[in-house]
Design a binder for these strands. Structure first.
Lengths: 131, 131
DNA sequence: GCCACGTGCAACCATGAGGTTGCAACTATT
DNA sequence: AATAGTTGCAACCTCATGGTTGCACGTGGC
């Protein structure tokens, strides 16, 4: 049921992947908006406010849940979902950090350390078989 | 010149959409990492460091460019691409704002304004067809 | 007990995104 | 001029994704 809850701030960014993937879809974003606005809602309810079937909503909620962006608890015969800020927050931080990284890296560094001789255009990319 | 440069912080979040979509793909993220690390690189060079063809890289770069995450300028017979922090930064802010929004919204509000009569199921306005 | 509402599961469909290959066009370098 | 290295198209392939429908299962209200 949960995996993104694995509060993993590790470098690989395994969670970031999930969040970005989930957030990439517009319908999913609308869903989150609705959810954030209402606090709680069931898949059936949400489907009523979107141009898609209930099943589609269920699938989307599953993705969002896997990404840790929402969580649902059972209440009687229905399952109410609610938004879960943590993962989003973490991803926002990650992204801000990345942006900062890019900014403080105008260019160079690598270019200098990559061509000791005098060739700014190394035609022989050599060794590293990154595969 | 391009399009994402349309510094549009408008509500619709037209840019955010592009950035999230672009960032959703892992290959594209690797590409950005490489690019950020080297400062500048051509599609051909980058393809050499990734497990995909040059053409695939070209397509990815096109997506990233459309999202405003990279920009390329011609230098002789080659086209060097470089990372472009602005869009990423904006998106990070947007996301942080959203997260903050979620956090300061434990629930309620809706419950009060939504059920005066007795019918909480209006056929709502299907906004822009997502697809 | 019966019925209605809501969820859960599975099969199925269609499109688009990621990837490939092949080739034409352009720019340097010799 | 001939050639080698790059970029730019375009056709084409495959598979994951978003979406649908149909039906079985649970749970609560009558």
């Amino acid at each position: 049921m949960d995996d993104a809850a694995t509060m993993d701030r590790s470098p690989g960014g395994e969670m970031v992947d999930g969040v970005l993937g989930a957030l990439a879809d517009p319908t999913r974003r609308r869903l989150l908006d609705l959810l954030a606005a209402q606090g709680e809602a069931t898949a059936t309810t949400l489907a009523g406010r979107l141009p898609v079937s209930r099943q589609a909503v269920v699938k989307h909620l599953a993705v969002l849940d896997a990404a840790g962006l929402v969580a649902g608890h059972r209440s009687g015969r229905e399952v109410r979902y609610a938004v879960r800020p943590a993962a989003l927050d973490d991803t926002a931080r990650w992204m801000a950090g990345l942006a900062a990284d890019w900014e403080r890296r105008p260019a160079r560094i690598k270019a200098l350390a990559e061509a000791p001789p005098s060739e700014p255009a190394p035609p022989g990319p050599p060794p590293s078989g990154t595969r």
